[in-house]
């Protein structure tokens, strides 16, 4: 059931080259070191403006400070165990964070999907939910390999109208209408759908 790739220590017959060892060490302590650095930087950004309140007992900084420190301690522990792990490698199976390899994973498609999400997030407040949702469904299906333009159009338009009906019409949610011309369009469109 474990999709995890377990590398058997290949170091049985020869000591790892120093350069490779360094690379292994760095890659394995990168994440905990990054988190450790974060815990050192974050406290100075806790308050944006100087506080004018008088603390009674513990101040508003107490709780986050406790847990930032706890994270720092754990990150150090993690780094130590990782280093220990690297040097004790010969003795045991090496397990590390390795992406699941049970299926073909297309990082390009994942990146494409994330780009679409960012585009949608930018469009939503500007052009309103109706247009951005229809565009999003269209592009996402395209990315997912649907090439039939009839299906693409039907799914995006009917889908968008259904969502508008359920959430703006029935549930009375104030989804974004966009700004300027797009606001005018949205109001017109919502009237057309008898939602307004």
């Amino acid at each position: 059931m474990s999709p995890l790739r377990t590398e058997t220590g290949g170091a049985k017959h020869r000591a790892p080259h120093m350069g490779r060892l360094l690379q292994t060490v760095l890659s394995r302590i990168a994440l905990p070191s990054g988190i450790l650095a974060l815990t050192l930087i974050l406290p100075s950004y806790m308050f944006h403006r100087p506080l004018r309140i008088r603390a009674r007992g513990l101040g508003p900084d107490a709780w986050p400070t406790i847990f930032l420190n706890a994270i720092a301690v754990i990150a150090v522990l993690w780094i130590i165990t990782e280093l220990w792990g690297v040097f004790a490698e010969q003795k045991r199976k090496r397990t590390a964070f390795v992406p699941e390899q049970t299926e073909v994973y297309s990082y390009r498609k994942a990146a494409g999907g994330m780009a679409l999400l960012l585009g949608f997030a930018w469009l939503l407040p500007n052009v309103g939910f109706a247009i951005s949702a229809a565009l999003f469904i269209f592009c996402w299906c395209l990315l997912g390999g649907i090439r039939n333009s009839g299906i693409l159009l039907a799914v995006s338009v009917i889908g968008m109208i259904t969502l508008l009906w359920v959430f703006m019409g029935l549930a009375l949610m104030p989804l974004n209408r966009g700004v300027g011309v797009f606001d005018d369009f949205s109001v017109w469109f919502l009237r057309l759908l008898r939602i307004y």
Binding site: V181, D184, F185, V187, W188, Y196
Partner: peptide, 23 residues
């Protein structure tokens, strides 16, 4: 685009006389 925009604006403005006319 300008025409369409104008049309929406007018459609909405024309009824904006009798505020309120939408939710």
């Amino acid at each position: 685009g300008v025409l369409v925009a104008g049309a929406f604006a007018m459609a909405n403005a024309a009824i904006a006389q009798d505020y309120p006319n939408r939710p």
